[in-house]
């Protein structure tokens, strides 16, 4: 059976590839989004004596791995967690770190329900703004703003260490989204959620790019993770489709491996998804096949 051939700028095409993108990541995202929604609903139901069978009734904090990170100092110092954090947060933190050492921040792109929520809003944004979507902020400004999340991370950790309270809850849009009915949500969290929703219509994953402290932590693993997004220059036609498909605006085509701290390992840029060339952009170990 003949394969379709894509020609661009008279660059010889070595091999051509697939027809449709796999939806595996979407299914995984949907699973975790609804799982978290069900758990938070079950938690609310449990307070009035009801429950959904086979679903945990833990709090949102109990199933958020960032709670483990925020508790690290107190755990090391006195062996306990900050308010509202339980052993489960710690376990999930360790799992997320193991995954990040191997594959980078897959928790952000495959599991985090707030990332999924922003991606859904991005679909509306793309329809509204077409190719301008996700390219409104000048590159120079954007590249500086990308480090803002490390400032947020520092502030959250510092304030959590000094107060031993879960300070982040008051500004956490993820908590506001999944607990909107609760009087535990601070006005500031609702405001940040509102701003994130609006920004998501013009920028892909604005919270992840500029403010998420947990994304900041996991992003560091991109520097030394084992599986990386690797580009084979010999197979590349320099069409830049990988660059355009990246929700985090990473110039994938400019290097042989993605080491950018913002990569979320969504695999959108790979030959399996966007790249028209097979074996040009892959998620591999060094020299791996």
């Amino acid at each position: 059976m003949s394969q379709p051939v894509i020609q661009q700028n008279s660059v010889p095409i070595l091999k051509t590839v697939k027809i449709r993108k796999p939806k595996t990541r979407l299914y995984v995202q949907l699973f975790f989004f609804f799982l978290v929604a069900l758990i938070t609903l079950n938690k609310a139901l449990s307070e009035i004596g009801l429950s959904i069978p086979y679903i945990s009734n833990g709090s949102l904090h109990a199933i958020c791995p960032f709670g483990g990170v925020a508790s690290l100092y107190k755990f090391a110092a006195v062996g306990t967690f900050v308010q509202k954090i339980h052993e489960s947060s710690f376990v999930l933190m360790v799992i997320a770190f193991l995954l990040a050492i191997l594959f980078g921040p897959v928790i952000c792109s495959w599991v985090c329900p707030f990332g999924t929520f922003q991606e859904w809003l991005a679909k509306i944004g793309r329809k509204l703004f077409g190719k301008r979507f996700n390219h409104f902020i000048p590159t120079k400004v954007d590249s500086v703003l990308r480090y803002l999340r490390y400032v947020v991370l520092f502030l959250v950790l510092y304030l959590t260490f000094t107060t031993t309270k879960l300070i982040f809850q008051d500004v956490d849009p993820y908590f506001a989204l999944f607990q909107f009915w609760s009087d535990e949500v601070a006005l500031s969290a609702f405001i940040i959620l509102g701003v994130t929703i609006l920004l998501s219509l013009v920028i892909d994953r604005p919270w992840c790019k500029y403010a998420c402290p947990y994304g900041a932590v996991l992003g560091i693993f991109n520097l030394f993770r084992i599986f990386k997004i690797r580009r084979a220059p010999s197979n590349c036609t320099d069409c830049k489709l990988c660059d355009r498909s990246c929700p985090m605006n990473i110039p994938v085509s400019s290097g042989n491996a993605v080491l950018n701290h913002q990569c979320i390992s969504c695999l959108s840029c790979t030959s399996e998804n966007s790249c028209p060339m097979s074996d040009a952009v892959e998620f591999t170990t060094k020299g791996g096949k």
Binding site: R25, L99, F103, V106, W110, T285
Partner: peptide, 17 residues
């Protein structure tokens, strides 16, 4: 070693659960 979406999805589920 080269990973595809399906492999990564399975690994994520195995690790988490």
């Amino acid at each position: 070693m080269n990973l595809r979406s399906t492999h990564l999805a399975i690994i994520i589920f195995v690790f988490i659960f």
